[in-house]
């Protein structure tokens, strides 16, 4: 049985359909003279079943965009619709429950709980939600990310790449509608980075997992189906599948302006 067959039917919708959409989203930090506009009227649709990369210079608003897409942060203006739910007016508690249901996260720092084993870390979102894990799904997941043989180890006994794989499995375990990864390889060497990126790519290809990834690495971005370039809080370029060379060129164009 392939992993894809284990997925819930709701994720087998046709490609190119928006799973998250934002309209005219702005995000301002602080007020008065010191106010910073991290996002300035961004509209965007994230397509189902695709790997979308977000690139841009430091401080351009990548993380801010992702936090808003993921319902971790609220826009100062604009509308966010996540898998059919308008999150703009949701309470803190409803947002938490929505994240629990629909969102998976992978961070730059792996943020694993040191006292739990790899497997327990993976199961954490389910246990927080009070849900029972599906044994078969867990097996497939651990195999997919490649830590099946390390499941009883604690984070301190795992390498960085292995820890990030655990983090990815943790993000996937609850079948999220979208997986967000903010510089998932920012803390890894290039060889390990490649492994981790393959894991993410496989999740998109085999599991149909919609994924949004922020990265500084052109090589990483070239593995995406779509690459968004952001500068000064605006989307300035929207590329489809590109080579690393094209990405670097686009990057220079964006920063050169």
């Amino acid at each position: 049985m392939s992993v894809a067959e284990l997925r819930a039917p709701e994720h087998e919708a046709p490609l190119a359909e928006a799973i998250v959409s934002i309209e005219q989203v702005s995000r301002r930090y602080g007020d008065g003279d010191t106010a910073v506009d991290a996002l300035r009227g961004v509209s965007l649709e994230i397509e189902r079943g695709k790997l979308t990369a977000v690139m841009g210079p430091s401080g351009s608003g990548k993380s801010t965009l992702m936090h808003i897409l993921a319902g971790l942060d609220r826009p100062t203006a604009g509308r966010v619709v996540l898998d059919g739910v308008d999150v703009t007016g949701l309470s803190e508690k409803k947002m938490t429950l929505l994240r629990r249901e629909k969102i998976g996260f992978v961070f730059q720092f792996f943020n694993l709980l040191p006292m739990l084993t790899a497997e327990e870390n993976v199961l954490l979102p389910l246990s927080i939600a009070g849900r029972k894990p599906d044994e078969q799904w867990l097996e497939e997941l651990l195999l997919t990310v490649g830590i099946a043989d390390r499941r009883k180890h604690r984070p301190s006994e795992l390498s960085g790449g292995q820890q990030q794989r655990v983090a990815i499995a943790r993000a996937l375990v609850s079948n999220p509608a979208v997986l967000f990864a903010d510089e998932p390889t920012g803390n890894l060497d290039s060889a390990t980075s490649k492994d981790v990126l393959h894991v993410l790519r496989n999740a998109v290809d085999d599991l149909g997992q919609t994924t949004v990834m922020v990265t500084h690495d052109a090589g990483a971005a070239s593995m995406a189906d779509r690459i968004l370039f952001i500068a000064d809080g605006r989307i300035v370029k929207d590329l489809r599948e590109s080579t690393a060379r094209e990405v670097i060129a686009a990057m220079q164009e964006v920063t050169g302006r």
Binding site: L72, L97, R99, F107, N111, L124, I128, A129
Partner: peptide, 16 residues
């Protein structure tokens, strides 16, 4: 702190 942030991000409610 960061760990609590992560837990909250993956769905731990304030009450939890």
């Amino acid at each position: 702190t960061r760990e609590i942030g992560m837990l909250r991000a993956v769905g731990l409610t304030r009450r939890q």
